[in-house]
């Protein structure tokens, strides 16, 4: 009889600790969900910055060999024999704004240098400059989409 009582008591404690663990598990998962939710809340989804699509003008406005800098949008519109390209002016090292030079582009902050295609020729930059997608609007103007990056050497032809 005494033995059975002990066994009952033991299983009672087990059930209690099992339910306790279950409770802690629930609290932990809820806490985790809350943390993830709060972090997701802080993850930016809407871009409030400057427009990411820029209308640059009629293709005829640019002669072959032209390299027009769009300061506020931070890219350079280039017209070569092969067509149009938009090369980012944001240095891939620490995101300073590069400026055009005879040889291509150079960053004043930490001395990264790029050729006219945005390939690295010197300095600490780890990657070549980005190329953005160039397209055309229905009324025949060039449109640069900064959200879409294309590989170097992808020229847009009309």
């Amino acid at each position: 009889m005494g033995y059975q009582d002990d066994a009952a008591a033991k299983s009672d404690v087990d059930r209690r600790s099992f339910l306790g663990s279950l409770g802690w598990l629930g609290v932990s998962i809820s806490g985790l969900i809350a943390v993830v939710g709060n972090l997701l809340y802080l993850k930016p989804t809407v871009s409030y910055g400057p427009a990411s699509r820029i209308v640059a003008g009629k293709p005829a406005d640019f002669t072959v060999g032209a390299r027009e800098v769009f300061e506020n949008a931070q890219f350079a519109l280039v017209r070569e024999q092969d067509g149009f390209a938009a090369i980012s002016l944001v240095c891939t090292h620490l995101r300073c704004t590069v400026r055009t030079s005879e040889a291509g582009f150079e960053c004043p902050c930490h001395g990264s240098q790029y050729d006219r295609n945005g390939s690295i020729t010197g300095g600490p930059a780890p990657e070549p400059l980005d190329w953005y997608k160039v397209g055309i609007t229905p009324n025949g103007e060039l449109e640069i989409d900064k959200t879409v990056k294309v590989s170097q050497g992808t020229y847009f032809n009309i």
């Binding site: 972090l39 802080l42 993850k43 930016p44 871009s47 409030y48 910055g49 400057p50």
Partner: peptide, 13 residues
Amino acid sequence: RSFLLGGDIVGQE
């Protein structure tokens, strides 16, 4: 970076 800046550039966000 985007968590700190709230976007891709140092701006209002």
